[in-house]
């Protein structure tokens, strides 16, 4: 059964493709695994009928936009949910994408589900159910925008002792096989030469060993601080189930507490680590 959004997306994709306004349309199609949608690239109006949208459309398609090979095809049409749109705006904000390189089909979204059919954790904190950055808006307005208040989620860890937290995270990072799927899946991890691949000097050890695993996971999270769109792609991609979003949420919370900054849908907003205020809090400084 197709919901309204599916039909509308097909219609827009067809029109854009037949008018030649875009070279490729990135959307969701029927998947082969548990009925879960999968990303598809549509290049002809006919293929547009394969497009769908439903609550299994969890992937962040914006990730594809970080690859030059995709951008080189020409103008790209793309389906985004609010969280995905934050990532897309991030790419524009950080000069990785020009606004005119994309035709954005934003979808209002009541949340998407994980493989187990449960609502994704991130959807419980969604403040962009009705995206505001698009060329086309699909779907009727969703009513409740949720507060991005992670305190309940983080409390369990924040109230642990230092040793407990260390044990918890070591037990997580220990699993890391350094596949870098988190990085590949992240729409904002777009460096062509990641810091972990820099070998003169090799700041982060590359072997799958506690020391390097720790540094890698910390630095990956910190490099996304003030930038992470909260799309959950990293955690979804992690084959060993490291709760990476906990780190991302923690950083988002602290950046809000310290600088009152939150990733939004405004390409002009200033990333927190490129600026400062003379009265920024420095309570930790002697």
């Amino acid at each position: 059964m197709n919901d309204e959004r599916t039909l509308k997306i097909r219609e827009i994709a067809k029109e854009l493709l037949s008018k030649g306004e875009i070279a490729v349309f990135i959307g969701y199609g029927k998947g082969t695994c548990n009925g879960k949608a999968r990303p598809i690239f549509v290049r002809t109006p006919e293929e547009a009928d394969e497009l769908i949208f439903d609550s299994t459309c969890s992937n962040n398609l914006v990730t594809y936009l970080k690859f030059p090979a995709v951008r080189d095809e020409g103008v790209v049409g793309i389906v985004v949910k609010g969280c995905d749109a934050k990532a897309l705006v991030g790419l524009i904000r950080e000069s990785q994408l020009m606004r005119e390189q994309v035709r954005i089909v934003a979808v209002t979204c009541e949340g998407v589900v994980a493989d187990d059919g449960q609502l994704q954790l991130r959807c419980q904190y969604c403040d962009v159910a009705n995206p505001t950055f698009y060329d086309f808006l699909v779907g009727s307005p969703v009513e409740d925008q949720k507060p991005r208040d992670f305190s309940g989620l983080l409390e369990k860890y924040e109230t642990m002792s230092v040793e407990e937290r260390w044990e918890f995270w070591q037990s997580q990072f220990e699993k890391c096989i350094r596949c870098y799927a988190c990085r590949q899946a992240c729409p904002l991890c777009y460096c062509t030469r990641c810091i972990v691949e820099k070998n003169q000097p090799q700041w982060i050890e590359t072997s799958s060993h506690l020391r390097g695993n720790f540094a890698w996971n910390i630095i990956r999270a910190f490099h996304l601080a003030g930038r992470c769109a909260g799309c959950g792609a990293c955690e979804d991609a992690c084959p060993v189930d490291i709760p990476l979003m906990l780190l991302n949420y923690k950083l988002e919370k602290e950046i809000w507490d310290y600088f009152h900054y939150r990733v939004d849908l405004d390409p002009e907003s200033v990333p927190p680590f490129t600026t400062f205020k003379t009265d920024d809090r420095g309570e930790f400084i002697l």
């Binding site: 950080e94 990785q96 460096c191 062509t192 030469r193 820099k198 200033v270 680590f273 490129t274 600026t275």
Partner: peptide, 13 residues
């Protein structure tokens, strides 16, 4: 220049 990706964080900061 070979590895700079042009995010211009440096320019801003």
């Amino acid at each position: 220049e070979a590895t700079c990706i042009g995010c211009f964080y440096c320019l801003r900061a």
